[in-house]
Design a protein around this nucleic acid. Structure first.
Length: 820
RNA sequence: GCCGGGGUGGCGAAACCGGUAAACGCAGGGGACUUAAAAUCCCCCGGGCUCACGCCCUUGCGGGUUCGAUUCCCGCCCCCGGCACCA
């Protein structure tokens, strides 16, 4: 057959064919029976997208492709792989976008979902379209609400006051990200804080468990580290400082502080309370009252973001009150300052300016005394402090504890104060409870009814879902309340317990709640009577492998872990960690720069798939760089993978021209080496080097224009299948096989004996510099290699007239001759 | 500031446990085939010196350990991502 007659590689034709076939034959879909009966279940999960109006982003495709490659590989190894996808469509972004374009989110979201679905199918993911979720559908959020009810009943949901960012001009609550440099991103009005009653999940009760479990789950190390930091365990002590004055003999009139440095208590020269601290009213003197009140007003007007900036200069005022340092017995002044946060610890600190940078700065500013209580090894005991000393050393000015090392001092002083009821060792966590209330429209209503007599009552499960009503005007307005609070006919109801007139909760829940459990729903989407089928859940969960971005390292992943543990404790699950393995993928940039709509450098997937095909696009994305690190998308680079797939096609088709019989020995060795490498690396998500290995192999097969043997290319067709599934299917079929290449344990096995190199090249160094190389059979001994090296002219040149002092020999690799 | 991840040819990148730095690919150059082009195949492609055999330099910078360092240790610089006074 002449070249001209050859059938060209035509990805668009071939990809459409296989996508249709997968659809028709249910190649990637599971029936309920199949889910029940699976004998080798493998749950392959990826983070579901938020369906924006712009369509699928390359970042999404990159992540999904990496996960899909993993799923397809597992499937070729004989696992039954369940790979679902869905849509996380509630939340502030959809709401704002809908407001901007003037289309109701209930109309907008289905359009976006339809567009995403179309694009996702084109990319060739192994998705089970019979098991998909959309968090905005009542049949999904019914169970999100059910979950809230379970936690509420289990005592893990509570209502308490918390500060929110408040824009006095827009009259609405803002998310932290809507506050830019202390002002509202929309109208530039300075943002204030307000306290309102909100629902919280008590994730902090689980802090220790969430931390401990990190030890035995197989997650990316960076993600685990981020979670550890976020949980922020700190060991220390709570110390009590009795308030001086008329209230001094009252038991409750002591200020509790949490400190990680109880060893420095002798150096605590003043006390600082958060402006909101309840004891402020008790300790303030009449003389200072006006000043304190005005400071508290000011603090209230500062938004939460600005208040947490470290760079701002420290401010504070004296309350006029004093308390007693429990160690020295001295009276010390009580101040308030906004750098002390009510949300952390006890909302009060003992200030040790000598050994804490913030306290030092504050003391300098307000001329408060600084006392040294720790001496660094090389310092004089009485040396004045030019800055806070936070390092190790020995205690000084600390009475009977002088001379103790910092670490020992912590325990001893805590015990000593403890004997008098003034201290106890304590562990605190930075992690705080999860606020799930949102004063917004686009979310699932929180399923609570507020009854004047019974208080907050959960909506009975049989009355779920509480449907989010279609409200045309959902814009936040002057009332400063949730949009649903303006819909009287919706919120007026009766108490499920006593029947009295009652009012529905008008806040909706946080989107993170929607996504904290979606993986439980996927296998059971056809059950409308339970959130998840117990039998199927036992079989398929926890998730075997979860792949997603590290931007969700803390919030989403921590919430999902918390919820799973809580459901276990409440008797709804029999495992407590949802994701056995988690891998974070890297970020993809383009031509060295971050992609953004404003820069106009985003990649439009549709046009690339049009031109090169989904297989090439997938392969190129995975070839860019290490999957867990990301890569730089350069437009020209796609020709590499395209050429590779095209050459693979041309090598195999037409199949009747392939040679018969076993591979040629040299090719066979390379083949087994390639299978070994690809098998090992695919398991570790090292996709770029796997692809390189296959390219190298194909180059060897085609080298010098040789005609391939069928036995040389058939294993390669299977190995590229995870990356280029359409092409692989077509080649597999043309090679004479029935059905899908993915329907069986088709992954090639390699024979280490065949992969072994018989001849090796050994580097010969003289004093660590490579001077020559010698070829020898693998396993050749030192003496023999040394003899060969000596015979080498360029080596002997250096050896002449020199003492051979040492010989280092690494079998099959290197010989280093040390002379001199 | 703190916490992560990085810095290797013109470019994206590779390198097992410390053992020939630059695999694979892009871009570039040369050649074969062709009337020609495309496709395909072959060769070259970090810098410098040399007719050449070869030699010297080179993995952000400066030290160190080692027979030998992209890899380990110490100190710095720069880039990317995240967090923000956490007591």
């Amino acid at each position: 057959m002449s070249r001209a007659d050859r059938e060209p590689y035509s990805p668009s034709h071939l990809e459409a064919k296989w996508q249709t076939r997968w659809e028709e034959e249910g190649t990637n879909a599971f029936t309920r029976e199949e889910l029940r009966d699976a004998s080798r279940p493998y749950y392959n999960l990826m983070m579901f997208p938020y369906p924006s109006a712009e369509g699928l982003h390359v970042g999404n495709i990159y992540a999904f492709t990496g996960a899909d490659v993993h799923g397809r590989y597992q499937r070729l190894r004989g696992q039954e792989v369940f790979e679902p996808i869905g849509f996380d469509a509630f939340g502030i972004h959809s709401e704002n976008f809908a407001l901007k374009v003037g289309i109701h989110p209930m109309d907008l979201i289905p359009r976006n979902v339809a567009n995403f679905t179309r694009q996702l199918r084109r990319v060739g993911g192994m998705f089970d379209w019979d098991h998909t979720v959309d968090t905005t559908q009542p049949d999904y959020y019914r169970w999100t609400q059910w979950l809230f009810v379970q936690l509420f009943r289990g005592g893990l949901a509570e209502r308490k006051e918390a500060p929110v960012n408040w824009c006095p001009s827009c009259m609405t609550v803002l998310a932290n990200e809507q506050v830019v440099a202390g002002v509202c991103e929309r109208c530039d009005t300075p943002v204030e804080q307000r306290r309102i009653a909100q629902w919280f999940f008590k994730i902090s009760d689980y802090a220790e468990r969430l931390l401990q479990n990190l030890e035995h789950i197989d997650w990316s190390e960076t993600t685990k580290k981020a979670q550890r930091n976020w949980i922020g365990r700190s060991e220390g002590a709570v110390l009590r400082f009795p308030v001086a004055g008329p209230r001094a003999d009252r038991d409750d009139a002591a200020i509790e502080v949490f400190t990680t440095r109880p060893d420095t208590v002798f150096g605590a020269t003043y006390m600082v309370l958060a402006p909101e601290h309840p004891l402020v009213d008790e300790v303030v003197t009449d003389h200072q009252r006006a000043e304190v009140e005005s400071y508290r007003e000011r603090a209230k007007r500062t938004d939460l973001v600005a208040r947490k900036k470290a760079e701002t200069e420290k401010t504070g005022v004296f309350t006029g009150g004093h308390c007693r340092n429990p160690a020295t017995g001295d009276l010390i002044p009580i101040w308030i300052a906004d750098y002390v946060l009510m949300e952390y610890g006890t909302g009060a600190i003992m200030a040790v300016p000598g050994h804490d940078e913030r306290d030092f700065e504050f003391a300098r500013r307000f001329d408060l005394p600084v006392v040294r209580v720790v001496r660094a090894p090389e310092e004089e005991e009485g040396a004045p402090l030019q800055e806070a000393y936070t390092g190790k050393g020995a205690l000084v000015n600390s009475g009977e504890f002088d001379g103790l090392a910092v670490e020992e001092g912590k325990a001893r002083i805590t015990d000593w104060l403890g004997e008098r009821g003034l201290a106890e060792a304590k562990v605190t966590y930075r992690l705080h409870d999860w606020c799930i209330s949102r004063q917004r429209y686009w979310g699932p209503p929180i399923p609570i009814v507020h009854c004047p007599d019974c208080g907050p009552v959960a909506v009975p499960e049989e009355d779920l879902p509480v449907i989010l009503p279609r409200v045309e005007d959902f814009k936040p307005d002057a009332g400063g309340v949730s949009p649903l609070a303006r819909v009287e006919e919706w919120y007026q109801t009766t108490c499920p317990e006593c029947g009295a007139d009652a009012r529905r909760e008008t806040d909706v829940s946080d989107t993170f709640l929607d996504s904290a459990w979606y993986f439980l729903r996927y296998p059971s989407t056809d059950r409308d009577d339970v959130p998840y089928d117990p039998e199927i859940t036992r079989k398929w969960l926890p998730v075997d492998c979860y792949i997603g971005g590290n931007e969700h390292a803390v919030l989403h992943l921590l919430y999902a872990r918390f919820l799973t543990a809580a459901l276990k404790d409440l008797g709804h699950l029999d495992f407590e960690e949802p994701f056995t393995k988690f891998r974070a993928h890297g970020l993809i940039i383009r031509e060295g720069a971050k992609m953004s709509k404003s820069k106009g450098n985003v990649i439009i997937p549709d046009s690339i798939i049009e031109e090169f095909g989904a297989d090439t696009f997938r392969t190129y994305l995975m070839f860019l760089g290490p999957f867990e690190e990301g890569g730089d998308y350069r437009d020209e680079g796609i020709h590499g993978p395209f050429g590779f797939l095209k050459r693979l096609w041309e090598t195999v088709v037409p199949t009747d021209q392939l040679r018969k019989g076993p591979p040629e020995p040299e090719i066979e060795q390379k083949l087994h080496q390639t299978i070994a490498q690809v098998t090992e690396q695919l398991g570790d998500l090292q996709y770029n080097t796997s692809i390189a290995a296959m390219m190298e192999y194909l180059n060897a097969v085609r080298s010098g224009g040789r005609v391939a043997a069928r036995s040389e290319v058939e294993p390669l067709a299977v190995m590229v299948a995870p990356f280029a599934p359409h092409l692989a299917e077509e080649l597999w079929q043309r090679l004479g096989h029935e059905g899908s290449v993915f329907d069986g344990e088709r992954w090639p096995v390699y024979d280490p004996a065949k992969a072994r190199e018989e001849t090796v090249t050994i580097a010969v160094q003289v004093n660590g510099k490579v001077r020559s190389t010698v070829e020898a059979p693998a396993g050749t001994g030192e003496d023999e290699v040394l003899a060969m090296a000596r015979a080498d002219q360029n080596v002997s040149r250096y050896l002449d007239g020199q003492d051979l002092r040492r010989v280092i020999f690494v079998p099959d690799r290197l010989l280093n001759l040390v002379i001199g």
